[in-house]
């Protein structure tokens, strides 16, 4: 019982406290908000351990049991390790070997390691992001374009008034953003802007009202302990 009541009480007290905080224009109130935001970042950072553990455990089991495709898990581990080494090694070297000359010339036997802090141009991690992660993400997302186009080909047949409107709006938006649209007819970009600013705004605003109402209701349910799904399971322990 207490194992469920304590979390519910914490959620209630914190929820009410920070609703009140919003209406208190005192410096202390602002400091509380700034401080708690730092706390949330720290908690979030530590909580990421769970996700990392889940990933590592899954791939470790794949390799241990030699399930079909376990070699891919090995690739995952290798690249995971590579990114960690690229990120931490320069700092570790700077910390242990050259604490007084951090950022200066590296010692000879370690000269192959660029002593540049991670994320700064020239560091290995920066290189990995620029030449690995960023193009990789672009490729992945661009591939979705093929699937969207393929789905649209099947779904966008003008069989009803609604489907026709969807099709026309999509085509105008697509043409309006390309030079060919302007070449076909000068008015297409203007119609595109109108679609975005009038019917699109009306629809999105109404949908957003619904989302907001739902969020408010859900937040109140959490604060007052009506929503308990986050406690997990149905046991009463």
């Amino acid at each position: 019982m207490i194992k469920r009541q304590i979390p519910l009480m914490i959620a209630f007290v914190m929820g009410i406290l920070f609703i009140i905080q919003f209406f208190v224009p005192h410096q202390l109130s602002q400091d509380l908000l700034t401080g708690v935001n730092k706390w949330l970042m720290i908690i979030g950072g530590i909580s990421l351990l769970l996700g990392i553990n889940s990933l590592v455990h899954f791939h470790y089991v794949q390799i241990k049991r030699e399930t079909p495709g376990w070699g891919f898990s090995l690739v995952m581990f290798l690249c995971f390790g590579l990114a960690l080494v690229a990120g931490f090694l320069p700092s570790i070297v700077m910390w242990f070997v050259e604490p007084a000359k951090a950022g200066a010339e590296p010692v000879k036997w370690l000269s192959f390691i660029p002593l540049i802090p991670p994320f700064e141009p020239g560091s290995t991690l920066f290189w990995i992001f620029r030449n690995g992660i960023s193009p990789f993400m672009a490729t992945m997302f661009s591939m979705i374009g093929f699937f969207i186009a393929s789905a649209a080909f099947r779904a966008f047949r003008a069989r009803s008034l609604e489907a026709t409107l969807l099709l026309i709006a999509a085509v105008i938006i697509m043409l309006g953003q390309t030079p060919i649209g302007q070449m076909l007819w000068q008015g297409i970009p203007d119609i595109m802007v109108w679609i975005f600013s009038v019917p699109n705004t009306a629809a999105k605003r109404a949908i957003w009202f619904g989302i907001t109402m739902g969020t408010i209701a859900f937040s109140l349910r959490i604060i007052f302990g009506i929503e308990r799904a986050y406690l997990g399971g149905t046991d009463q322990k």
Partner: peptide
């Protein structure tokens, strides 16, 4: 109105993916 809104979102998303 919803259909026009969805069409606009769809067209915008496709163009973003195409540019990638």
């Amino acid at each position: 109105f919803i259909m026009v809104g969805f069409g606009a979102s769809f067209g915008y998303t496709v163009m973003a993916r195409i540019s990638l």
